[in-house]
């Protein structure tokens, strides 16, 4: 089992992105990095120039690199962007099935957790089409993940599970950041850049519940699979995905690497996860077949 760093889901400023990937390239023990704009095509012009820089830097450091597609492709411009990804010379991670309309059959690709891979029929179809890696949807319990990982292992498809990060729960046509500021999506003024870990949404009882990130809704709690490392490895899960938050991802990746090597997580990994999680709030309900928001100590 190794580590994949997922795409930055939030709207970070270009200098922060450059520093982030430079540090990941130099210091983080992750085998591969998925990067690119996942959530909103309007953000891309602000940091597009950082993508080739990061790709070169990460490749030079020996990392495998994949470029993500957008999660929801509707506009003509977004279809063009998605089509251009195919010719970027880097493997593509599909986050919307639209991408497959442009990928010649047999071209290797990776599948993001936003694609609905719930069963072996779907895994088979994607494998036949060229899928080499599949990160499973967050809501799947360990029992389903184990069946899919075993099927993947038989077919040469690496199956990955969400290991850390605020979980993407929904994507919409509506921008909630704009709505919170009484603006429409078309005149959002890129207000989502004020919340580099997402903007928290609490219940009326003041419980931290969700986080909005433009058109995306995430969990407020950070999903953390540290307690399941042994079970996931035994189930032939081949990688854990770490999703960037503003906390110390390098320190976190190092603790994950140590726990994977040991076959189980100790208190140091959970401490690193709490330190990197916004507000220190963790959840692990989904893998246990419960509500995703639940947390049960290992």
């Amino acid at each position: 089992m190794d580590l994949t760093l997922g795409p930055i889901q939030f709207f970070w400023e270009a200098p922060r992105i450059r520093d982030f990937y430079a540090r990941i390239a130099d210091e983080a023990p992750v085998a591969r990095v998925v990067l690119g704009e996942l959530v909103c095509s309007k953000r891309l012009p602000f940091w597009q120039g950082e993508i080739p820089v990061a790709v070169e830097r990460l490749k030079a450091a020996g990392k495998e690199v994949w470029l993500t597609s957008l999660a929801l492709v509707t506009l003509k411009r977004e279809r063009q962007l998605t089509e251009e990804l195919v010719d970027a010379g880097v493997g593509v991670e599909i986050s919307d099935l639209t991408t497959l309309a442009y990928l010649p059959k047999g071209t290797p690709f990776s599948v993001s957790p936003l694609i609905n891979v719930y069963n072996i029929g779907t895994l088979d179809w994607l494998a036949e089409r060229g899928a080499k890696r599949i990160c499973l949807p967050n809501e799947l319990p360990l029992a389903s993940a184990a069946k899919l990982a075993a099927a993947g292992a038989e077919r040469g498809v690496a199956v990955e599970v969400w290991g850390f990060g605020r979980q993407p729960l929904a994507i919409s046509g509506r921008c909630y950041h704009a709505r919170l500021h009484n603006r429409s999506k078309d005149s959002c003024q890129f207000i989502c850049n004020a919340d580099p870990d997402g903007r928290e949404v609490d219940t009326l009882d003041g419980e931290r519940f969700l986080a909005v990130n433009g058109v995306q809704t995430l969990s407020a709690a950070t999903s953390f699979a540290g307690g399941e490392i042994g079970a996931l490895a035994a189930a032939q899960v081949s990688a854990l995905r770490l999703s960037p938050q503003t906390g110390n991802m390098v320190a976190l990746a190092r603790e994950f690497e140590a726990a994977i090597a040991a076959g189980k997580a100790g208190p140091a990994l959970e401490a690193a996860a709490r330190a990197a999680a916004p507000g220190g709030q963790l959840a692990n309900g989904y893998l246990r077949g419960h509500a995703g928001a639940e947390w049960a100590p290992a």
């Binding site: 929801l72 949807p137 967050n138 994507i171 046509g173 995703g292 928001a293």
Partner: peptide, 19 residues
Amino acid sequence: VMAEGRCSLSSYATGQSPN
């Protein structure tokens, strides 16, 4: 309100989802 079939808000709160 969300893109259908791509929403796990319900399971996040309850463990049960549309998908």
